[in-house]
Design a protein around this nucleic acid. Sequence first.
DNA 1: AAGAGCTACTATCCATTGGTAAGTAGTTAC
DNA 2: GTAACTACTTACCAATGGATAGTAGCTCTT
Lengths: 133, 133
Amino acid sequence: MPTLTAAQRREQARVEYDAFIKGCPTNQLLDRLSDKWVSLVVAALSNGPMRYSDLSRKIAGVSPKMLTQTLRALERDGILTRTVTPSVPVRVDYALTPLGSSLAGLLTAVKAWAETHIEEVHEARERYDGTPG
Amino acid sequence: MPTLTAAQRREQARVEYDAFIKGCPTNQLLDRLSDKWVSLVVAALSNGPMRYSDLSRKIAGVSPKMLTQTLRALERDGILTRTVTPSVPVRVDYALTPLGSSLAGLLTAVKAWAETHIEEVHEARERYDGTPG
DNA sequence: AAGAGCTACTATCCATTGGTAAGTAGTTAC
DNA sequence: GTAACTACTTACCAATGGATAGTAGCTCTT
């Protein structure tokens, strides 16, 4: 019988770990999450499960190597599930786990921020590049 | 006299751009934001301005090269400001702009997610690695 | 029945990136 | 005079990431 609820244990974990510290496991996890392909894969799956070929079409520019690598890493981390249907040809579906869904909201927010504020960033770059010195 | 408010223009921008598409400027911006050092620098500055040496102490493990590189890129993108005080020795302060502050909430949320859910990720990894085949 | 095409990858090569470590400049404290 | 503080810059090398090509098993076309 646990003395703490799951929520309490998570809160305690957040206090004990500090992603600012090198070597802290959360530092490595943040590194994993801070990846363009991770953001795009998780954002793509937030609307529902997708097949490998669907993902490679949706995420324009991802190579099969990086897509597989990203999917395997996220599967290992419990963020998504990989389901093989032995039809002909074989069919592989990827879907977010509840853990993955809790992350998806955050990563899609970052993606949406980029899409919303890109013009402001462009203006800032022009100001910066135009400044002599 | 603009026919659209700033908020309307931002919303339109979000619809016109799609970070899933390679070559789209937002795809490159997402790549920039999806960086461990960017997350940590922006999270560190979300509590107020910091000096270069403060940041390098707070963000354990960052090399001067990567810290300067990250700070310069974020300054160019209008996410933070760099203020030199010609004291002796010289003092350089970094602070988030309003644009940077709007991003900070999102990136600190991702950092907090990593700190909160690290144990679940570890358990998932053990399950995955323990599974034969 | 020969060849193209579909699926989901795997493998190889090379340019770019990122990390490590050392160097720089200007001043001050000991 | 030399060690220390500030905020960097530079050089080097290993690792990562991206482009491209190959694989396996089956089906559909001609």
